Amino acid sequence: MSRIIRFHELGGPEVLKIEQVDVPPPGPGEIAVEIKAFGLNRAESMFRSGPYVETPDFPARLGYEGAGVVTALGAGVNDFVPGDAVSVIPPLSITRWGSYGEVANFPAAVAVKHPSSLTWVEASGIWMQYVTAYGALIEIAKLARGDVVIITAASSSVGLAAIQTARAVGAMPIATTRTSAKKSALLDAGAAHVIVTQEEDLARRVGEITKGAGARIAFDPVAGPMLLQLAGAMAPNGIVIEYGALSREPTPLPLFPVLAKNLTLHGYQYKEVVRDQAQLDRAKRFVLDGLASGVLKPIIDRVFAFDQIVEAHHYLESNQQFGKIVVTV
């Protein structure tokens, strides 16, 4: 029996329970991992509370990513041996696999032998953020040197990964944040400019920064009224990539800016990368090379103990964090 975090109904962080569960051995193509740490993602709080792109099958596990030691192999797995230190790229389904626990099974295809220079805490929270940023910015938007990209909710782990990804290819990241509290930290993290949306007009500031040209790319997990603001800040033939729905307000289609500027609106999930083996291989190489060179470096905001999972989820939803929240096991 292993301690596993599960929930039996939709709700707030209090629905998360630590339970003794008999975890089955890994199936064909899977590995069993003794979890040392796992990163938290806002998508997990949405899965726990609803609505989300997947529906829980109760009692439900959750958790997209983690790091630990391989303890057993399923049939057909040849690339790992027990004792390997691995970190996990989020698999395609949170309802089938979940990292919140002492032990978890994962498809071997999404496990990576992470660099020995990373701690368990760092390794547990790299793949969701960097694969999400890489797939959107590099694979879809073809971000290149000299491009201007607007990154909203920039103090999140994915937002910070997007800033680093833009810097890695020589692009200009413009970060947005609601208040000025995180402005200095965002500049220190590599943002070329920071726009405080409660104090500044987004389109006007982007126009000033780009001398009227606008941004070719916007990378946004907020939606709601933010989409209209982004449309006003875009260059002709620009692309807005929506990868979340953090706003509780309706998301109107900014039809006239879309028509006038010939904008592309692209809904996006990290799964676009994971489903495509060639893209996934390129993502792995980009991230591993970036970690090795130091161009990519995970920013850890706060670490919680396993027994503090409810407190950790409350903190996740507080929007206070700057970077990744990690839970150690």
Rank of each mutant, 00 (worst) to 15 (best):
P26W: 11
G29E: 05
R42E: 07
R42L: 09
S45L: 11
V53L: 10
L62Q: 08
E65A: 14
L73H: 10
G74N: 10
N78H: 15
N78E: 15
G83I: 12
S87R: 14
S93F: 02
T95L: 03
T95A: 08
W97G: 02
G98I: 10
A104E: 04
A109K: 15
V110R: 11
V110Y: 13
H114W: 11
A123R: 09
W127R: 15
A141P: 04
T152Q: 01
T152I: 00
L160Q: 05
A162S: 06
A168V: 10
T177I: 12
A185T: 07
H193E: 14
G212N: 06
A215N: 02
D220T: 00
D220C: 00
A223M: 00
L230A: 00
A233E: 00
P236T: 14
L246S: 01
L246R: 00
S247I: 03
R248W: 13
P250S: 08
P257M: 07
V258P: 02
L259H: 07
Y268C: 05
E272M: 13
D276R: 05
L280R: 12
D281P: 08
A283C: 06
F286C: 09
L291R: 08
L296S: 05
R302L: 12
A305V: 12
N319V: 06
V329Q: 13
